[in-house]
Each structure stands twice: as C-alpha cells, then as structure tokens.
C-alpha cells in the first residue's frame, strides 16, 4: 500500500520543470516507477506530488546521430538491451542493462531512472561510465551537458537542480577498436541487486603503446566509481604478472566498500574486484 500523494502528468519539459521548481521537495519525478514506488511504499520518500514525465515527447528511444548515440532517458532497460546500435557499439551497456531486475522490471525501468536513482551499483551506470557517457539535463531555462561521472553526489543523490530533468544520454561511438566486459556478482543467481558490478573497457587492445583502459566499479564507494588512478597506470602497459600485482594494489587502495552491507562484505567485494581485474591480464 502506498500512502496518499497527488499525481500529475506533463507533456512538456517546460511545464514539468516549472511545476517541479515550484514544489521543490514536495514533488518527485515518476518515470518507470520501479525504484520510486518501492521508496514510497517504504515511506523513505513521501512526495506530495508525483510528476509523471512519460507524456513528454523526445525522451524515449535510441537514435544514431553520425558518431553519436542518443538515448532518451525514458527508454526502458529492455529497449536498451535489445537495441541494435547498443549491441553493436556498446555491448558492455547491453550486458549491464540486461542484468537489471528481470524481464518484467525491465519493461518498466528506464535508463534515466536507473541513473537518477543514484544507486552506487546501478547496472546501466557502471557500463555507461566506461563509455564516457554524457548526460543532457533540461529545465525550463534550457539545457546543460555534464559528464555522467560528475553526476553522482552520494547514495541516492544526483546532480539535478530545482526543476531539472535528465533528458538524454550521449555516447560517442568509438572510432578505434575496443574490447570490454561487464562483470557482476549477486547473492542469488536469479533476480537480485548487484553485490558488486564492474565494467572494463580497453581501447586499442592489440597495441600496447596505444592501449587505454577504463574501469568502473559499483557498490564499493558512495557513488559509482571510475578508478582513474588505475586506468592511468594501466594505459600503455603490457599486461604482465608484475603489472597485475601493482594494479591490484592500486585497485584495492581505491575501493572503500562500507561495512555492514547486506549484499556482501568488504572482503568479498575486494576479492571479486581483483578477480575481475585479472580478466585484463588473462584475456587481453
């Protein structure tokens, strides 16, 4: 059962934005609802108004625009996972999106909602980070672009100002060879939140000198984590045993999983992160 709130649906960003600004913390955006309704039910969120943005044009779908892919924030996780452009250019995102919830949840859950929920282990966010995704944030005053990496402020907190709505996610199609993988461990093999999820992307994997690595990890910090120090260290390196030992050390230094998580202990998370890192040294 949900405690009472009012429901209002808008068909333009402008109107929604004005309303959201006017009502501040009393209003909350409703997209797919798979996180918001859970929070309302638990009374962790007590909005006076739930603002449905599903009527707004231009927030749905995936479009290829020359060297870019633009994903509407209201695109569902199933639509992301099944999209041919995503499968072709961003397979790590496809894999991440496909692990979110289950088929029925993914029919409702949106990629924008998954981002704005602010979970440190969001299954679409971890892959988006290694693709250097950018987000377009809109309000009645216009639009701004931000690197997704800068969008997270803490557990459940994202960088949306009053009246701001996440509109699109922009991904640049790589014009160089890439190899990547999405890793995930959870308590059960059926539907479950990630105890740890991780994405690794290697640009120019076959050329040691041109190699660049990007790594993101979920559930090891208050926000989804890009491990820049490790990325820098690994770029242009040959993946030897010695490098792995050093990389492992840098990785562990960057992880700060909280004690008392119900998903996994810090010990286990670190252990699995190291194991996933070893993929680079075994498969590349």
């Amino acid at each position: 059962m949900l405690i009472p709130f009012e429901y209002i649906k808008f068909d333009s960003i402008k109107d929604a934005s004005v309303f959201l600004k006017e009502h501040g913390d009393d209003a909350h955006i409703l997209a797919g609802g798979t996180d918001v309704i859970v929070k309302i039910r638990a009374r962790k969120l007590k909005p006076k108004y739930l603002v449905d943005i599903k009527g707004i044009e231009g927030l749905k779908g995936i479009e290829k625009d020359r060297d870019k892919i633009v994903i509407g924030a209201l695109t569902t996780a199933n639509e992301v996972a099944k999209n041919t452009h995503i499968k072709e250019y961003f397979p790590v995102l496809k894999d991440g999106a496909w692990t979110l919830g289950d088929y029925e949840i993914r029919n409702r859950a949106t990629i924008g909602g998954n981002i704005c929920n602010g979970s440190p282990s969001a299954d679409t966010v971890i892959p988006l980070l290694v693709y250097d995704a950018k987000v377009i944030i809109a309000s009645d005053e216009g639009e701004r672009v931000e690197a997704l990496d800068k969008f997270f402020k803490g557990p459940g907190k994202v960088n949306l100002g009053p009246g701001e709505i996440l509109k699109n996610i922009i991904l640049n199609i790589p014009d160089y060879p890439v190899k990547g993988k999405f890793f995930r461990v959870s308590r059960v093999e059926g539907m479950d939140l990630a105890s740890l999820n991780m994405a690794i992307l290697v640009a120019n994997p076959d050329s040691i000198s041109d190699r660049k690595v990007r790594i993101s990890i979920g559930a090891v910090a208050p926000v989804p984590l890009r491990v820049y120090e490790l990325e820098e260290f690994l770029s242009g390196k040959e993946f030897t045993k010695e490098i792995f030992d050093k990389a492992k050390e840098i990785l562990l230094n960057n992880l700060n999983p909280r004690e008392g998580s119900l998903r996994a202990t810090p010990y286990y998370k670190k252990r699995m992160a190291v194991h996933y890192l070893s993929w680079l040294f075994e498969e590349i």
Partner: peptide, 16 residues
C-alpha cells in the same frame, strides 16, 4: 531485523 524484505532476505530462485 535488517533484512525484512525480499530484496535482502533471499530465498532460492529458479537459477539457484
């Protein structure tokens, strides 16, 4: 009780 939901009290799923 910290895990008073099916999100955090996990029973075997069809894959377990």
């Amino acid at each position: 009780i910290r895990n008073d939901s099916l999100t955090d009290y996990k029973i075997s799923t069809i894959r377990d």
